[in-house]
Design a protein around this nucleic acid. Structure first.
Length: 784
DNA sequence: GAGTTTGAAACT
DNA sequence: CAGTTTCAAACTC
C-alpha cells in the first residue's frame, strides 16, 4: 500500500503550498511558519494557562437537573470546569476555591457561574488577574448582547479568559423542543482568541440539539481555538483549532430533554514552571432517548501543559464513539495551527443546512509536552478506523496511525465524568501494538498544520479489506515545495508541517488508507486519552485516490522485501523506501517496525539528510507541457538496455527521458526492441488473464458440480452415477459398442451409419448405467 | 532454489 | 562530483 501514489505526490507540491498560504492568510503570520525546534525551550509565559480550576456551567434552566447530573459525571476530573447555560435561563452561582495544583484543584474546583438575562450582555470577570490585552478590563469577558446567546468564560490567573458561548438558539429551553425544525441545525463550538485571550465559543445554529424527535440531521459543531501568545521572539503566534463536526441527533425523542447541556472544564496547572498546559474539551453530541438531549463540552487539562485536548464523547449509545482532539498549545511554538474540519454532505460553510444523517466525528489528539521530546499526536479521522497521530518520544517525527475503534467501552472519560485527572499522563507515549496499521511520521511534531477532509457526498462509508493491512511511514519533511490544493487533495488528507531542517514538510495521508483498518484492532491510549474510538467518523473512504478507486489503492499489497543486511532501514528496502513498515516480509533483522522506532526515525532522518526528497516518488510529472510521467532522476542503466526491470524507468512502465544517463538505452518511443517487448508483454499478459479466467471458470464449474452432486451423495447415501462406471461396466459397454460396430460392418452399413449406431448404443449403455445407479440408490438408500 | 546480474543506494 | 562498495531485486539456470 502506498502512502501516496506517484500521481498524487506529483501534485502535492503546489497543493500543499496553497494550503499553507491559506493558513497564513487566515491565522498565521508568516514568521510563524518557521516553527522553532522542538527542543527549543518553551517561553515561560503561556497564554491560556490558568492556574485556578474553574467551573462554569452552561445549560438551559429547564434542564438544570440534568445538567447537574451531567456535571456530577464530569466533576471527578481535576481542573476547572466550565458550566454553560443559556443566558436567558441560567442562574449562576459561584463557588470557587483556588488551588495551586491540579491535585488540589480536583477536590477544590473553583466554580464560576453567571446569570445572563436574555438580551443582556454577559460580562464575566476573571477569576484571576489577567492583562487586558483586548482593551477590556482584565479578567473580563464581554458577551454580545444578542439575546439568549450565552458566553461563558473560563478564566485563568494568567489572564487568559476562556469563554464558551452558546449561540442564540442553543439555549432555548425545552419549550422550543418538539416544535423545532425536523432538520438539525449545525452547532458550532468555537474557541477563539482575541488579543491573546483564548475564547471558547459554543454556538449553535440549530434551535436546539435534538429539538425534534424526528431529528436525524447532523449538527455541525465547530470548535475553533485561536491562541495568540503574548510575546515571542518569533512574533505573535496564533494557535488555532477548528473542529467541525456533524452530530447526529436522532434518538432525541423527548422534547423536554433535548435542551443541550454543555459542561466544560478548564483545569490548568498552577505551576508556572511547567508551561505546558492541556485543555480538554469533551463533547456529547447526543444522548439516549430517555435522557436529556445534552451536549457536553468538557474542557479539562491534562497533566501535561501546553496541550489542548478536545474530546467529544458521543452519545447515542454507550457504545457511541468518541472524538478527541488534543493539541499542544505551546505558545513558544505558537506556530501550531490545527484545523480539523469535518462535515458530512456539506461543507463546513454550509453546515447550517447539512442534512446528512451520518454522524461524523473527527478526532485529533496531541498529547505530550511541546518543546520536549515527549510528544505525541493522535489523530483519528474516520470512524471505524481511527487515525492517530503519534509523536514518538525522542522523535521529532509525527505519526499518523490508524487503529480500529472500540465499542465505546471507555466512554465519558474525555468529558471528565470519572476523570481523576491526576492520573492523566499525556506525555506518556502511546504503546503501539499490532493494531497499528499505519504510521506516518510527520516531521516536526511541533505543530499540526491542517486536517481538512473534504465534505462527503454521502454518509460515512468504510472500506475494509481482508488483506493484511499495511502500515505507512510517510516522512513529511523536506517537501518544501509541496503546495496543497485543498480542493484536490483526497478527503481526509492529513497535512502536517515539518520544521526539520528549516523546511516545511507535509505528511499526506489520504483518507482511503484510513479505511484499511480492521475492525478488531484497538489501541489503548494513555490513561488520559483512552477515548472510545468507536466514533462514527465521516471517512470519505470511497473516494478515489490519484485516479485509483479506493479498492484499487488499497488492494495493492506490496511485495515483501527480503532485506538481510540493511535492517530495512535503507532505501534498498522497498518497504522503507515507500514509507511502509515491513509487514509479512522475509527480511532479516528488520528494524522497519514500531519496535525499533528510534532507529527507524534516525534512518529516515539520515535518508532525508542525504536526499530531502528521498521519500518522494520518483515518478512524477514531466516538464510543463509534457503529459507523460517521467523519472525524477532518470536511470543509469548500462547493460540492461533499459528494457528490464532493473531499469526503474522500464519498471515504472515509462520511457527513458533526457535526464537518464543510461547507456544503450532501448527504452524510447520508437525503439523496435521496446515495441516488441511491449507486444510480447501484452500478449503474455493476455494469456495470463485468459488462463486465469479459464481456471476460475473451471474451478467454478467443479465447485458447482460438487455442490449439485453432494445432495445425491449425502441424502441418498448412494454413489454418484459415474461411480458405477467401473472397469467391468466399461468393458461391458465397450463390448456392446464393438458388437454394434460388428453388426454394422456385417450389414455393410456406411461408416456414418455405423458411427450413429455405435453412438446410440453408447447412449443406451449410459442410460442403463444411470438407471441402475438410481435404482441402487432407491433400493439401498443407506450407503450401498 | 541457488547463483548471477544489475543498477540504485550508500559510502569514500 | 566521481569512483567504489553495498545491497536487494531481477533474472537465469
Amino acid at each position: 500500500m502506498d502512502v501516496v501514489s506517484p500521481e498524487l505526490n506529483s501534485l502535492l507540491p503546489d497543493e500543499i503550498m496553497d494550503t499553507e498560504a491559506i493558513a497564513m492568510e487566515e491565522e498565521l503570520p508568516a514568521e510563524h511558519l518557521a516553527a522553532p525546534p522542538q527542543s527549543e525551550p518553551e517561553p515561560p509565559q503561556v497564554p491560556m494557562e490558568t492556574e485556578l480550576p474553574e467551573i462554569v456551567s452552561l445549560c438551559p434552566a429547564t434542564t438544570s437537573m440534568q445538567m447537574t447530573s451531567t456535571d456530577a459525571q464530569c466533576s471527578t476530573s481535576s481542573g476547572t470546569q466550565l458550566l454553560l447555560a443559556p443566558s436567558s435561563l441560567i442562574s449562576g452561582t459561584t463557588t470557587s476555591a483556588k488551588t495551586t495544583s491540579p491535585a488540589v484543584t480536583q477536590n477544590l474546583p473553583k466554580i464560576s457561574s453567571v446569570t445572563v438575562p436574555a438580551n443582556h450582555q454577559l460580562i464575566i470577570n476573571k477569576v484571576s488577574g489577567a492583562s487586558a490585552a483586548d482593551g477590556k478590563s482584565p479578567g473580563t469577558a464581554v458577551l454580545k448582547p444578542e439575546g439568549q446567546k450565552l458566553l461563558v468564560a473560563g478564566l485563568s490567573k494568567t489572564g487568559q479568559p476562556i469563554m464558551l458561548a452558546l449561540p442564540h438558539t442553543w439555549n432555548k429551553p425545552a419549550t422550543t423542543q418538539g416544535t423545532g425544525d425536523a432538520k438539525a441545525q449545525p452547532t458550532q463550538i468555537k474557541m477563539l482568541t482575541t488579543v491573546g485571550k483564548p475564547v471558547i465559543a459554543v454556538s449553535s445554529a440549530s434551535q436546539l440539539m435534538g429539538s425534534s424527535s424526528t431529528l436525524q440531521a447532523q449538527q455541525l459543531k465547530t470548535l475553533q481555538i485561536t491562541k495568540k501568545p503574548p510575546v515571542s521572539t518569533a512574533g505573535p503566534m496564533i494557535t488555532k483549532l477548528i473542529i467541525t463536526k456533524a452530530l447526529n441527533n436522532k434518538g432525541l425523542s423527548s422534547p423536554a430533554s433535548v435542551a443541550p447541556v454543555v459542561t466544560g472544564r478548564v483545569v490548568t496547572q498552577s505551576t508556572p514552571v511547567t508551561p505546558p498546559r492541556t485543555i480538554t474539551i469533551g463533547e456529547t453530541s447526543t444522548v439516549p432517548q430517555n435522557a436529556s438531549g445534552n451536549s457536553k463540552v468538557a474542557i479539562s487539562p491534562l497533566k501535561s501543559p501546553s496541550k489542548l485536548t478536545v474530546v467529544s464523547v458521543a452519545s447515542q449509545s454507550p457504545n457511541s464513539p468518541q472524538k478527541s482532539v488534543t493539541l499542544p498549545l505551546n505558545v513558544a511554538l505558537g506556530q501550531q495551527i490545527l484545523t480539523v474540519q469535518q462535515s458530512a454532505a456539506t461543507s463546513p460553510a454550509k453546515a447550517g443546512t447539512s442534512q446528512s444523517t451520518a454522524q461524523t466525528v473527527k478526532s485529533v489528539q496531541t498529547v505530550g509536552g511541546v518543546g520536549t521530546s515527549q510528544f505525541k499526536t493522535i489523530i483519528p479521522f474516520s470512524t471505524p478506523p481511527n487515525v492517530q497521530q503519534i509523536q514518538v518520544p525522542g522523535s521529532r517525527f509525527h505519526y499518523v496511525r490508524l487503529v480500529t475503534a472500540t465499542t465505546g467501552s471507555s466512554t465519558a472519560q474525555s468529558s471528565g465524568s470519572t476523570n481523576t485527572n491526576p492520573s492523566i499522563q499525556p506525555a506518556k507515549p502511546v504503546m503501539m501494538n499490532a493494531a497499528v496499521r499505519m504510521s506516518v511520521p510527520i516531521v516536526s511534531a511541533q505543530s499540526i498544520k491542517q486536517v481538512v477532509p473534504k465534505p462527503l457526498t454521502s454518509a460515512a462509508q468504510v472500506v475494509t479489506t481482508s488483506q493484511t493491512p499495511q502500515r505507512l511511514i510517510m516522512p513529511a519533511t523536506h517537501l518544501p515545495q509541496i503546495q496543497p490544493n485543498l480542493t484536490n487533495l483526497p478527503p481526509g488528507t492529513v497535512l502536517t508541517p515539518a520544521h526539520g531542517s528549516g523546511n516545511m514538510g507535509y505528511a499526506v495521508l489520504p483518507a482511503p488508507y484510513v479505511t484499511q483498518i480492521p475492525q478488531s484492532a484497538f489501541v489503548t491510549l494513555t490513561s488520559s486519552s483512552t477515548f472510545s474510538t468507536a466514533t462514527p467518523i465521516q471517512t470519505q473512504a470511497r473516494l478515489s485516490l490519484n485516479g485509483l478507486s479506493t479498492s484499487e489503492a488499497t488492494s495493492r499489497p506490496r511485495k515483501p522485501c527480503n532485506c538481510t543486511r540493511s535492517q530495512c532501514l535503507k532505501l534498498y528496502c522497498d518497504c522503507f523506501a515507500n514509507g511502509e513498515f515491513c509487514n509479512n516480509c522475509n527480511c532479516v533483522n528488520c528494524f522497519n517496525n514500531l519496535d525499533h522506532e528510534s532507529e527507524r526515525l534516525k534512518a529516515i532522518k539520515s535518508c532525508l539528510d542525504r536526499n530531502p526528497v528521498a521519500f518522494k516518488p520518483k515518478i512524477g510529472k514531466g516538464k510543463e507541457g509534457e503529459s507523460d510521467r517521467r523519472h525524477s532522476k532518470g536511470c543509469n542503466c548500462k547493460k540492461s538496455g533499459c528494457l528490464k526491470n532493473y531499469c526503474e524507468c522500464y519498471e515504472a512502465k515509462i520511457m527513458c527521458s533526457s535526464i537518464c544517463k543510461c547507456m544503450g538505452c532501448k527504452n524510447f518511443e520508437e525503439s523496435p526492441e521496446r515495441k516488441t517487448l511491449m507486444h510480447l508483454a501484452d500478449a503474455a499478459e493476455v494469456r495470463v488473464q485468459q488462463q486465469t479466467a479459464a481456471k476460475t471458470k473451471l474451478s467454478s464449474q467443479i465447485s458447482d458440480l460438487l455442490t449439485r452432486t453432494t445432495p445425491a451423495i449425502t441424502s441418498g447415501g448412494g454413489k454418484l452415477p459415474y461411480t458405477f462406471v467401473t472397469k467391468e461396466v466399461a468393458e461391458a459397454t465397450c463390448d456392446c459398442l464393438l458388437e454394434q460396430a460388428e453388426q454394422a460392418e456385417l450389414t455393410d452399413q456406411p461408416q456414418a451409419v455405423a458411427e450413429r449406431l455405435i453412438l446410440e448404443e453408447f447412449g443406451r449403455c449410459l442410460r442403463r448405467i444411470i438407471s441402475f445407479a438410481g435404482k441402487v440408490k432407491t433400493d439401498c438408500p443407506i450407503n450401498c
